[in-house]
Design a protein around this nucleic acid. Structure first.
Length: 507
RNA sequence: GGCGGCGUGGCCGAGUGGUUCAGGCAAGGGUCUGCAAAACCCUCUACAGCGGUUCAAUUCCGCUCGCCGCCUCCA
């Protein structure tokens, strides 16, 4: 039984889906006008992990995540750069997905774009007007507004009453006096010169921000879809308004709401939220150039998805080292001949119980602990601790030669890391940024994610030769020669680990 | 100003009314190794402060202090 913290209810609840065994989820995606930053990366990773875990857990998951490609900032950007809005949004969308691919984020099943849905938004707004849930303001900066008072529980998602919301309304933004309530928000904006517009019953204009998500999520996932997610800075007003619009159309909206925490930056005593407006962001691509993308996934897994997390150089480099030791485990397992899920290729296995038996004894409790942690509101830090413990025990088992126990643990580790979208590199060519198919579904991700490093056979052969030479030198105890070869290898970017079962080299 | 959240050992970060311990990173010691690397073992015994409830609180309640988020576009 999966439990998650439901923002609307305000506590952890059991995930109860519309159809047993299926999860239809919608996660608000980016507005594409600029380079994605670490915050976008963190949120995408959080939701990727949730999606993958639910899939691993046996759910058939439909994952929809939108791209907002009509918006003030895109328009401004286009004007600044002398390009079209479409050019701006297409460019930054491709940058965004490139970064997502490198992070090993599985592509959503559907990526609806606001511009593809304008007709349907117009119809939706027309319907809201007809139902008396929206009204038109004529004149300059006019448009169609949603009447917040027309639905019963506006504010439920932020857990505030309309009265409370009114108290602080206008505290930071000027309120248009023509609105019936200061809380009313735009569904349709009348077009201004030089802006992209679409025809509508209220004249040429463009949709407000919130309406796209209501329309697209209901269109693709239908009434009462299971889970609506996003960053917790979207709770109000964006998600509150999405909900209001759907309820205003007398549609059943999301059954569950969940929100991921922000990335913070800065010094002692807690940082501030990373955001474009504060100018304190680190571009995702910069970080990806400096770190193995898997390290970022590890850093994200080591904090809970709902918590704010600091993600600066010290956090990422700590994650680098964690990753390094996890990869070292994979190399060690390979060198010992332990193959995940295949038992151990060792005489130990022949004399005692079968590999399957060992797995039943050893692996299952680990998997159970992992599932228990993840079922409790996707407690990835705890799940990660289970993985770390299994790795330790597997390494120890290899050290003492208990390859049967090791095999079961190695298999468990692969199972768990796979469920979270993490692939360990055992030095055989799984590359740093290799994409991971979703557990249990074999869903392929975009081609560019599978950056298999091209290997030059000639260089590989040279390295193998050098390693063999070094082993020979060591065998005749000519350590001067062997150390010289090691340095030669180091200059090629190749590192060496001597194990009882032979020398491993890796980059 | 309103609403909400958080404060755990050198750092990051789970968790719990009472027993032995989260975990990661870092540090120190040890084992193994020609060395290196890796690994394993051990050590570093924390829960902001002040009250209260309780046989017992880091865990529940209250207050104080500090930090953060939302109330505007934001992942």
């Amino acid at each position: 039984m999966v439990r998650l913290f439901d923002t609307l209810i305000g506590r952890e609840v059991e995930l109860v889906t519309r159809e047993p065994g299926k999860v239809a989820m919608y996660v608000c995606g980016p507005t594409v006008y600029d380079a994605p930053h670490l915050g976008h990366g963190r949120m995408a990773l959080c939701w990727d992990v949730i999606r993958r875990y639910l899939t691993w857990r046996g759910y058939e998951v439909t994952y929809v995540s939108n791209v907002t490609d009509v918006e003030d900032k895109i328009i401004r950007r286009a004007a600044e750069t002398g390009s079209t809005e479409a050019e701006v949004s297409q460019h930054w969308e491709s940058v965004y997905f490139d970064a997502m691919d490198r992070l090993g984020i599985a592509r959503p099943d559907q990526v609806p774009h606001a511009t593809e849905y304008v007709d349907r938004m117009v119809r939706f707004i027309t319907d809201l007007v007809r139902r008396g849930r929206a009204y038109v303001i004529e004149g300059e900066n006019g448009g169609v507004y949603f009447a917040v008072d027309s639905i019963p529980d506006y504010g439920a998602l932020v857990h505030r009453s309309v009265e409370e919301l009114l108290e602080s309304a206008g505290a930071r933004v000027e309120v248009d006096e023509r609105k019936r309530s200061p809380l009313d928000f735009t569904l349709w904006k009348a077009g201004k010169p030089g802006e992209p517009t679409w025809p509508s019953p209220w004249g040429p204009g463009r949709p407000g921000w919130h309406i796209e998500c209501s329309v697209m999520s209901l269109d693709l996932l239908d009434d009462g879809f299971d889970l609506h997610g996003g960053g917790n800075d979207l709770v109000f007003p964006h998600h509150e308004n999405e909900r209001a619009q759907a309820l205003g159309a007398d549609r059943r909206f999301a059954r569950h709401w969940a929100h991921s925490g922000m990335v913070t930056v800065g010094g002692e005593g807690g940082g501030e939220k990373m955001s474009k407006s504060l100018g304190n962001f680190t571009t995702l691509l910069d970080v990806l150039d400096r770190h193995d993308p898997r390290a970022l996934r590890i850093a994200v897994l080591q904090s809970h998805y709902r918590s704010a997390m600091m993600l600066g150089p010290s956090e990422t480099s700590a994650a680098d080292r964690t990753l390094e030791s996890m990869d070292a485990h994979a190399r060690k397992a390979r060198a010992a001949g332990v193959r995940p899920g295949a038992g151990a290729r060792s005489p130990v296995q022949a004399e005692g119980s079968s590999g399957d038996h060992a797995r039943a004894d050893t692996e299952q409790p680990v998997i159970d602990a992992f599932r228990e942690a993840m079922d409790a509101d996707f407690n990835t830090p705890q799940a990660f601790a289970v993985i770390a413990g299994a790795i330790s025990r597997a390494n120890a088992a290899i050290d003492v030669g208990d390859l049967v126990a090791a095999a079961a643990l190695v298999a468990a580790v692969e199972e768990m890391t796979g469920a979270l979208g993490l692939v360990l590199d055992d030095g055989t060519g799984a590359t740093a940024s290799r994409g991971v198919p979703i557990a249990g579904r074999g869903l392929s991700i975009s081609r560019s994610a599978v950056e298999v490093t091209e290997v030059d056979p000639a260089i590989e052969a040279t390295i193998d030769e050098l390693v063999a030479d070094r082993d020979a030198a060591r065998a005749r105890r000519d350590f001067e020669a062997s150390d010289a070869i090691r340095e030669q290898l180091a200059s090629l970017g190749v590192r060496i680990e001597d194990t009882p079962t032979g020398t491993i080299w890796f980059r």
